[in-house]
Structure formats: C-alpha cells, structure tokens
Amino acid sequence: MNGLVGEEQKPIGEMTVLITGASRGIGAAIAERFAAVGMNVIIHYMRSHEAANEVARRCISLGAKVMTVAADLKDKEQVLRMQEKLRKHGMEPDILVNNAGVSHYGLLSDVTEEEWDTVMSINLKGTFLCTQAFMGRMISQKYGRIINVSSVWGISGASCEVLYSASKGGVNAFTKALAKELAPSGVTVNAVAPGAVDTSMLSHLEADEIHMLEEEIPVGRLAHPDEISSLVYFLALPESGYITGQVISPNGGWVT
C-alpha cells in the first residue's frame, strides 16, 4: 500500500516531468536525474536555446524521450501556449518541478520597483502560473507531484538579499497552502530549499567570499547540483505520496 488516491499510477519510467529553468545548474541536474530512469523529460528555458539543447542531448543519451520548450514564465499567454504545445505532443506532465528563478543581491534601499517586479514575477508569479496551468490534469487523474525549488533564504532570510528572500518565502507559503488544497486529489506539493549550491547563481562572489561561505557551512563545502536533484527525484516517487506541504532544506547544517 502506498496511500495514493485514485487509480493505479503509471510506472515511474512512463511518467512525464516538466522542469522549468532546466538549461543549467540545478534544473539541468534534475532533468538528467529523471532521464536516467527513462522518464519523458521536458526541458523548459527562456533564452538559453543552445544550453537547453545540450542538456537535452545528455538526457537523450541516457535513454529518455526529451522535448525542449521556450516560454517567458512571467507571461500567462506564453505559459498557456507552452501548455497547449505539450498537450499536442502528448507530453503533459505528471510531475512539475518549478525550478526557474533569478537571484538578486543588494541593499533593499537600492532595489528599484522594476527589480522587485522582475524577481517576484519570475520566482513567485511564474511558479503560480505554471502550477495553475498543469495541476488540472493531475487533479483529474488523481495523481501528481508539484515540487518547487525554493531557497534556504526563504526560510531564514538574508541580509542584502531581502528581495530574493521575500520571493522564496512566498514560494514556501504557496507550497504549504496548495498542499492542503490538493491533498484530497492525490497530488503532493513540496518545496526543496537548498543552501549554497555550486552553480552560476553564485558567480557574483569572489573566490575568497566562496571560501568564507564554505567555512560557515558545517559540512565545509558547497552542495553539488546532483545532491539537490536526488531529493527532488525522491519527492517525485509514487512512494513519497505521504509527504506533502513540506519545505525541505538540504543546506549542509548551515540553517537548522
């Protein structure tokens, strides 16, 4: 018994996963993790066409059926067009990983209204629009997984990252509330809130700043993207059906 609602679900290798912002970093690692089990993988990107194609080639080499799709997640019409395209190709997701996001570093006093709107629109509104577009099918089939990639700063907050922290805090609240709403339909909603991960999102830091950061982390190093993708994969499994409404933070003991 796995505690799932509705009819028996498809084997994991026959499911389809959509990962937003999958052309690099954590998103690319997540795509490859799912491809490794033969799942149908949809790689979303906004502008990084060639990078997305490179991730797609790696996923195909692992034996997965792969599709790439471009959309500006701040724009509802583009999200709906993406949804229609996937439907026409028989690639509607059973699993949605809302990974697309942007960071922002700077004093709140220096944040412009445009910067506020951009970060909130991508990190929070984009999560809302994608979830709203794809959760209907999950509800109707009485099975689905929605996994939101958040941040440790959405839990604890960070000086000079107030805007980013606020957007990810919103993602965490969104996760907890929607989990309660969708639980009766057999759809789980969880968030993964990584600490410092070795990706281009930390490219604004100098080498000595990275070293100081590592010294603050009890395990003494940054996370590898594969360590985050493994947790996302676990939450997507059918046997993880009793885990919902959780914000899980793999951060090396940095924030407890």
Rank of each mutant, 00 (worst) to 15 (best):
M1F: 09
N2Y: 10
L4N: 10
L4A: 09
G6Y: 02
E7D: 14
E7M: 14
E7L: 15
I12R: 01
G13I: 03
I19N: 05
S23T: 09
R24K: 15
G27E: 08
A28T: 04
R33W: 03
R33Y: 01
V37I: 14
V37H: 03
G38Q: 10
V41Q: 06
V41D: 00
I43V: 13
H44V: 03
E50D: 15
N53S: 11
N53Y: 00
E54I: 13
V55D: 00
I60G: 01
M67H: 04
V69W: 01
D72V: 05
L73G: 02
L73S: 04
Q78G: 04
Q78V: 03
R81M: 14
E84M: 03
E84H: 05
K88A: 15
P93W: 02
I95Y: 05
N98V: 04
N99I: 10
A100C: 04
G101I: 05
H104A: 12
S109L: 13
V111P: 01
E113S: 13
E113G: 14
E113P: 04
E115M: 08
W116I: 12
S121A: 15
N123M: 07
K125F: 11
T127C: 13
T131Y: 05
T131Q: 13
A133D: 09
F134C: 09
M135F: 05
G136D: 12
S140Y: 02
Y143P: 00
V152R: 00
W153H: 01
G154Q: 04
G157C: 10
A158G: 02
E161N: 05
V162A: 15
S165F: 08
A166M: 09
A166H: 02
K168M: 05
V171R: 00
A173N: 14
A177H: 11
A179Y: 03
A179K: 08
K180M: 09
K180V: 08
L182S: 09
A183Y: 03
P184W: 01
G186P: 04
G186Y: 00
V189L: 11
V189S: 07
V189K: 04
N190E: 10
V192N: 02
D198H: 09
T199H: 11
S200N: 12
S203A: 15
S203L: 03
H204G: 09
A207F: 05
D208Q: 11
D208F: 07
I210N: 02
E214L: 07
E216L: 14
E216Q: 15
I217N: 08
I217D: 12
L222V: 01
L222Q: 05
L222H: 08
A223N: 03
H224I: 09
H224A: 14
D226G: 00
S230R: 10
F234P: 09
A236E: 02
L237Q: 15
P238K: 13
E239K: 11
S240G: 10
G241D: 08
Y242E: 03
T244E: 08
V247I: 15
S249V: 01
S249N: 05
G253L: 02
G253P: 07
